[in-house]
Nucleic acid binder design. Structure first.
Length: 492
RNA sequence: CUGGAUGUGGCGCAGUUGGUAGCGCACUUGGUUAGGGACCAAGAGGUCGAAGGUUCAAGUCCUUUCAUCCAGACCA
């Protein structure tokens, strides 16, 4: 009911929601548009955080934390930036509650109105740049490479768990540099970090590219992104990295004295990924049995299910399992023994599959007799009987293989769904099938908007790492000359 | 804000021409089971989104209102 790109798609939302809820990742909170991330889901996010954080730090980035609330006036400074966000924000207007004079409960104390409203951050550029002003005086203070892990809030009209929620968790990096080149390099470096993370750890292929001017982040001169293809044929923007030029430096008056003693505005980049990556993970690999987690991000990589009838058998299986667990843990795997005695094995099998645990080991009296264990892998659903002494090695190989296999599978899927369109009719037909379409575009915003209006397709990116796109041609919509193909898709 | 739909135990739903609420799952207890989502028995749980109206009688009809979901506008 979930996957193939040709048929359904109406059921896909349902499938996605089911998995997110049933696999214990998250649920809707009573507050409209907000989300409760449950322990199992959060454990995956923590793994993502840990890996990304390490990758950032290896490039010299340091973590910091800036306030949740931003004075409204800060948003009046950078006109272009404000255009992008100001409309859909939560605003704090009062600072005190009082008992309701007309009954039980509390009301907002009208006398506690703030002189200046505070905005719940939709992103932190403004507060960070107003702070950077104090940090930056000389060329010796640069570059500044800061990241923060935090929550942000955007008052979205329609929300979907992980993919679009009013409040979400993310990291936002904000860097300040002496030269345009350095800031551009930083933006490029970070989008490559995101691409590596997606490919290596999430086992999710991505296309790296530039956003068209229309799709650019408000206030940016260039926006780089990674775009992934979901199993229903829609694209998902999984991370962005912006070259901000001197816009914020000028708005917040951040200047430094260069080696010659001249005052210069600094150059900026910002970059971020969010809990949306969780949604990407679900949609990139999930199947009809539930979630499929890449071993690198699975909170539990191996789950063991004991099978027994009598107490004696239970004890024997369990002691064998504890020994195996130890050897697997010594090899660096995270292992859990599911010893809940109220549930039957079949139920546990189904439940752990739903949660996407990569490898399952079942052991029962039969195995004890033979000195084996039944090993099951989540990605292919194949079972094999493995002698206990070879188990540790087999599991290590299998985890490795799953990580690679689901990448290969996702890559194959994506490559099968990147097609070229050379005429407008062809384009309109292909876009209905889903997937990425490589097509020529005349480079104008008007054409882009027209194409979107007629087909709901947007330019996902102008790829930087695809030689196929470099060629002369004619815009599919206007017929005007074009020097390269760009990537179109319908998207989340 | 525009268009469509839905509100009934924790979840998913049924409820006919109005007659005073029922099913599945989950839950509790006891037992039998256990190598792919067990079964039997007993039990607990709802003033049917809210307010008002029609009627001898409203989950059902009428009015108002609120909420949620889907499709748009906005967006990572």
């Amino acid at each position: 009911m979930a996957k193939d790109i040709t048929g359904r798609s109406e059921n896909y939302s349902q499938w996605y929601n089911d998995i997110v809820v049933k696999a214990d990742l998250a649920e809707q909170s009573p507050v409209r548009g907000c989300m409760v991330i449950k322990p199992y889901g959060y454990a995956i996010w923590e793994k993502m955080q840990g890996i990304l954080d390490g990758m950032f730090k290896r490039t010299g980035v340091k973590n910091a934390y800036f306030p949740l609330l931003i004075p409204k006036s800060f948003f009046s400074r950078e006109a272009e930036h404000v255009e992008g966000f100001a409309k859909e924000c939560a605003v704090v207007t009062h600072h005190r509650l009082m008992s309701d004079p007309d009954g039980p409960g509390v009301v907002v104390d009208p006398s506690a109105r703030l002189e200046e409203e505070l905005i719940v951050r939709p992103t932190s550029e403004t507060i960070i740049w107003s702070t950077y002003k104090n940090w930056i005086h000389s060329w010796r203070d640069l570059p500044i490479l800061c990241n923060q892990w935090c929550n942000v809030m955007r008052w979205e009209m329609r929300t979907r768990l992980f993919l679009r929620t009013a409040e979400f968790l993310w990291q936002e990096g904000h860097t300040a540099h002496a030269t345009a080149q350095e800031a551009q390099d930083e933006a490029m470096r970070m989008v490559q970090v995101y691409a590596e993370f997606a490919r290596k750890y999430m086992s999710m292929p991505v296309v790296v590219g530039h956003k068209s001017p229309n799709e650019r982040f408000a206030g940016a001169l260039d926006t780089l992104c990674i775009e992934a293809l979901m199993q229903d044929g829609k694209a998902l923007q999984a991370g962005t990295s912006h070259f901000l030029g001197q816009n914020f430096a000028k708005s917040f008056d951040v200047q430094y004295a260069d080696k010659e003693g001249n005052l210069q505005y600094v150059w900026a980049s910002s970059w971020g990924v969010s809990t949306r990556l969780m949604g990407a993970l679900v949609m990139a690999h999930g199947d009809d049995n539930g979630l499929v987690l890449p071993p690198a991000l699975a909170p539990i990589q191996v789950v063991m299910v004991p099978i027994y009838k009598t107490d004696d058998e239970h004890g024997a299986v369990l002691s064998e399992m504890h020994a195996l667990k130890k050897s697997l843990e010594d090899a660096g795997h995270s292992v859990e023994i599911d010893d809940r005695d109220t549930l039957r094995p079949g139920f546990k099998f189904a439940e752990w599959e739903l949660k996407g645990v990569p490898v399952r080991i079942a052991m029962g009296p039969r195995d004890l007799e033979n000195g084996t264990a039944e090993v099951h892998r989540r990605d292919t659903l194949e079972k094999e009987s493995v002698p206990v002494e070879r188990l540790a090695g087999r599991v290590a190989d299998m985890l490795d293989d799953i990580q690679k296999n689901i990448y290969a599978k996702a890559l194959k899927f994506r490559d099968e769904n990147i097609v070229k369109a050379d005429t407008w009719d062809e384009f309109k037909e292909l876009i209905e099938k889903g997937g990425f379409i490589q097509a020529h575009w005349d480079g104008t915003a008007e054409t882009e908007v027209k194409i979107q209006e007629e087909t709901k397709a947007t330019i996902r990116c102008i790829p930087i790492d695809s030689a196929v796109c470099e060629e002369e041609g004619k815009c599919i919509y206007t017929g005007k000359p074009s020097h390269r193909r760009v990537l179109f898709a319908r998207s989340y």
